[in-house]
């Protein structure tokens, strides 16, 4: 019984320690960021390419199919209330507020977050980071900060592309396949989507971008320098990102609802 108790305390302590380390790590990265943007701009651009441009196809294809499903499901359920004209509203509101930012963040973490974590983890395992330190190059500034900024810049843009393509997907399934009037689709959407819905999505994707990028670089940088450690860091990146994104999503939604009422 006491054994259990001590293990619980030990686990909790470990959790708190990791959480604190992550926050300190975040503060250090943020304090290095302004200088990195000025001094190492090409490196940041390269990382925007790695985590943004290379995720583009995945985001666009997934966004299109999510939109198609929203159009189909929305039509099927709304037609029970004779209001299938609102299918554009339903698709746009769910994409802009929830699905765009959340799914873009989850897909990004699977596509680019894991790549970041394993890349930095492998640099750690093969002593490349130590070699940089030997040459008086701070690996945090040279390796971690540009990758973090690349993710932070990419995420809002990816979420916006996801939502935009998703609305097009809903148009394809709702208007072209199921025969809702195209003008009504857009006029209903425009009558019901308010600027606050769009802002909510943009704020969410910015916060998710910071959270997902932080998880990836933190796990990679602090991974155990073995093959198994790198694998574990990659897994932890995806798991932690999913938990953080969904928990933050609830908090931001609650805050926005409280502030706008």
């Amino acid at each position: 019984m006491t054994q259990w108790f001590f293990e619980l305390v030990y686990t909790l302590r470990g959790f708190l320690q990791t959480f604190g380390a992550m926050n300190l790590f975040f503060l250090r990265i943020v304090s290095y960021s302004p200088r990195a943007i000025i001094r190492r701009f090409p490196l940041v651009i390269r990382q925007v390419y790695n985590s943004g441009t290379l995720s583009l196809v995945l985001i666009m294809v997934c966004g299109f199919f999510v939109g198609m499903v929203l159009g189909l499901q929305g039509y099927d359920n709304l037609s029970k209330f004779n209001s299938e004209d609102s299918v554009g509203t339903v698709a746009a509101l769910s994409l802009l507020q929830e699905l765009g930012p959340v799914l873009a963040a989850l897909l990004w973490s699977g596509r680019a977050g894991t790549a970041l974590a394993s890349e930095i983890g492998l640099m750690r395992a093969t002593d490349q980071l130590s070699a940089m330190e030997m040459m008086a190059v701070d690996p945090l500034r040279r390796v971690v900060v540009p990758r973090f900024l690349g993710g932070v810049v990419s995420m809002p843009l990816l979420a916006a592309i996801f939502s935009g393509i998703g609305i097009f997907g809903a148009y394809v399934s709702g208007v072209i396949i199921l025969g809702v009037d195209g003008g009504v689709f857009f006029s209903q959407m425009q009558a019901n989507v308010e600027p606050v819905h769009i802002w909510q999505g943009i704020i969410k994707s910015c916060v998710f971008g910071v959270a997902a990028s932080l998880m990836a670089v933190f796990e990679g940088y602090n991974s155990i320098p073995t093959a198994e450690g790198v694998g574990r860091a990659t897994t932890r990146t995806v798991v932690l990102t999913a938990i953080a994104v969904l928990a933050l999503d609830y908090m931001i939604t609650a805050a926005v609802l409280a502030l706008t009422d």
């Binding site: 746009a92 802009l96 990816l158 916006a160 939502s163 425009q190 989507v193 769009i198």
Partner: peptide
């Protein structure tokens, strides 16, 4: 990305 943001802010809302 910027194009999508522009589309969302101008074309979907009132």
């Amino acid at each position: 990305g910027v194009g999508a943001l522009f589309f969302l802010t101008t074309q979907t809302s009132n």
